[in-house]
């Protein structure tokens, strides 16, 4: 049962009971979804090209998006900051991924994030809304979070949290592409692929901080992105995750991609001069079986 059919049946059952459904998810690791722990990394200054290159290095977009798929591209649009300030995913990377998904036959591409600052300001200042709309395809929608769409789900193997509200469209997608930006963060040290799931969960999100590493792993146990593409073209090295001063921005011109979210995070950590084991969510994710954190065991393709 994939996420989509599962959710539909659960919603119907919930509606029938007249109560908010408490969903259970039993992840069935399909052969194609098994973490291959291959990672692609590339450098350059045309950020859209970089995104295309890393996806090609992983076998091309057709390995992820099938004709008719409903695709979610989930960038970090969390803050009212402009692209130079390196708090949000670069719009060129977002649009390059969308164009590939469309070319692969996606029936619909949704872009959204549950922002921290006022959502309209974030969508505008990040440049993402305008960039996505400029694609001019009715299949592509840059949407604000619709609060009706959070559904409670059980996290079967969760160690710190066992249930949480998830965004229906994210869970429901045929292909969920996770597109975080790599940056400094006070409590988790870095915010990378696994932390980007904060933008598709509801509830009292601040409480995730109480045990951030484990809780992020628990959340990602449900979410399971098909592909994680980390924007490390500009990284914030201090005063993250929203920054604001260009003094804290380092230009790395790097994009990283993998099916394995833990591997992607592990590699991105090295750009900050840290080790994978320094990041709690990476360790917890590895222990939960979400992916590989040992860089020696990851096949790294330089595209």
């Amino acid at each position: 049962m994939d996420r989509r059919t599962f959710l539909k049946s659960a919603l119907v059952a919930g509606a029938g009971a007249g109560l908010a459904p408490l969903l259970k998810i039993v992840p069935t690791v399909r052969a194609a979804d098994a973490p291959s722990s291959t990672l692609a990394v590339t450098e350059g200054t045309d950020y859209g090209v970089l995104a295309t290159r890393v996806i090609d290095a992983l076998g091309g977009i057709s390995g992820f998006v099938k004709p008719g798929h409903r695709v979610v591209v989930k960038p970090n649009i969390g803050w009212d900051r402009n692209p130079d300030q390196a708090a949000t995913t670069h719009p060129d990377i977002v649009t390059a991924i969308i164009r590939l998904a469309l070319a692969a036959g996606a029936s619909q591409v949704q872009v959204f994030d549950y922002t921290c600052n006022e959502e309209r300001r974030c969508y505008v200042n990040s440049g993402i809304q305008k960039a996505v709309e400029s694609i001019g395809d009715s299949k592509v929608r840059c949407e604000f979070i619709d609060r009706r769409k959070f559904v409670p789900m059980t996290i079967e193997k969760g160690k710190s949290i066992t249930k949480w509200d998830f965004y229906k469209d994210a869970i429901d997608a045929d292909c969920y592409i996770n597109v975080p930006i790599a940056k400094n963060h006070g409590i988790s040290k870095l915010t990378l692929g696994m932390k980007n799931c904060m933008g598709v969960i509801g509830g009292n999100r601040g409480q995730i901080h109480f045990s951030i590493g484990q809780r992020l792993a628990d959340l990602n146990y449900v979410l399971r992105p098909e592909l994680t593409i980390i924007d490390a073209t500009r990284i914030l090295v201090d005063n993250g995750p929203q920054g604001g001063s260009l003094d804290d921005v380092r230009v790395k011109n790097t994009v990283i991609a993998s099916r394995d979210i833990v591997a992607a995070d592990a590699y991105a950590t090295t750009l900050f001069g840290m080790k994978p084991e320094d990041i709690g969510s990476t360790v917890a994710g590895y222990q939960l079986g979400l992916g590989e954190m040992d860089l020696d065991k990851i096949r790294i393709v330089r595209a």
């Binding site: 921290c116 006070g186 409590i187 601040g206 901080h209």
Partner: peptide, 9 residues
Amino acid sequence: TPCIVCEEH
């Protein structure tokens, strides 16, 4: 308990 949501924002 770890938190600092305030610092994050």
